[in-house]
């Protein structure tokens, strides 16, 4: 098997050139799915007989929560690839993934809190999932803060990649322990168990939104990565030519 594609993938230049062809497709598909999903979820999915219309928040809350967690793994895995194979591109992807993941975690927390008000009567509950999300948010902020703290870019890359990896080992432990902690302290008045069955008429828009969020994530991650490549490789010849510098003339 040829590993050429793998090494090519490590080159920021190759990625920048290839990804410009993907961008419109990714962005278009994401926008299409997201707008269809939002209209479907807001207007056409039937009302929940128990929660009323507030349940419509599920169509953004669940996809955001999915991607908040998946985004952390994407960040940590690309950081690990960078540490192991010393690939420039994967560090860039890791750094680009951090603020996006933090933003999605914020969405999940915000929509969860707003959803909680009509459902449980309070904005914030120390529910196991909400608490884990909050800790995930802190993990993201830690990676972002550490990557920005170093004056030398490579050190920031490696240090935050290592921190992301340590976080990955910890996430399952944190989730399990928070879960255990919550069952210990669960107030009897709050029944937070959700219906395990969901009607297809409510489920299809949810699937649409999840797919839309994944595509959106891929699109935005590519955009951020491309921008960071331009920023980092600003001194190389190919970026200079791309940005409109004349080709070097032999003097």
């Amino acid at each position: 098997m040829s590993w050429q594609w793998f090494h090519r993938l490590g080159s920021p230049r190759w990625f920048y050139q290839k990804s410009s062809a993907w961008l419109p497709w990714l962005g278009g598909a994401a926008l299409l799915l997201l707008s269809v999903g939002i209209v479907w979820g807001l207007g056409f999915a039937p009302e929940d007989f128990k929660q009323g219309n507030s349940y419509r928040i599920i169509y953004i809350h669940v996809p955001a929560a999915f991607l908040a967690l998946a985004g952390y793994y994407i960040m940590a895995i690309s950081g690990a690839i960078g540490l192991i194979w010393k690939m420039k591109l994967s560090f860039v992807v890791m750094r680009a993934a951090a603020p996006i993941g933090a933003a999605l975690t914020f969405i999940a927390l915000f929509t969860g809190a707003v959803w909680g008000k009509p459902t449980w009567g309070t904005y914030w509950v120390w529910d196991a999932r909400i608490t884990s999300m909050l800790i995930l948010f802190f993990l993201y902020l830690g990676v972002m803060a550490l990557s920005g703290a170093f004056s030398r870019e490579q050190s920031g890359d490696k240090a935050s990649a290592l921190l992301a990896l340590v976080g990955t080992v910890n996430i399952p432990i944190i989730y399990k322990s928070v879960d255990w902690w919550f069952t210990l302290h669960q107030p009897a008045t709050l029944k937070l168990t959700e219906a395990s069955t969901i009607d297809p008429s409510m489920f299809y828009p949810l699937i649409t939104m999840i797919a839309g969020f994944y595509l959106f994530y891929a699109w935005v991650l590519t955009l951020h990565t491309r921008t960071m490549i331009l920023q980092r490789e600003g001194r190389t010849q190919w970026v200079r030519e791309l940005l409109g510098a004349p080709a070097p003339t032999k003097a």
């Binding site: 800790i135 802190f138 993990l139 902020l141 830690g142 990676v143 803060a145 550490l146 703290a149 921190l163 340590v166 976080g167 910890n170 432990i173 944190i174 399990k176 322990s177 928070v178 255990w180 902690w181 210990l184």
Partner: peptide
């Protein structure tokens, strides 16, 4: 910064310690 990056990792120990 140290507190920010380490505190989340302390969560399981805290939970089971107080538990």
């Amino acid at each position: 910064l140290l507190a920010l990056i380490i505190m989340p990792l302390y969560v399981p120990v805290l939970i089971f310690g107080t538990g």
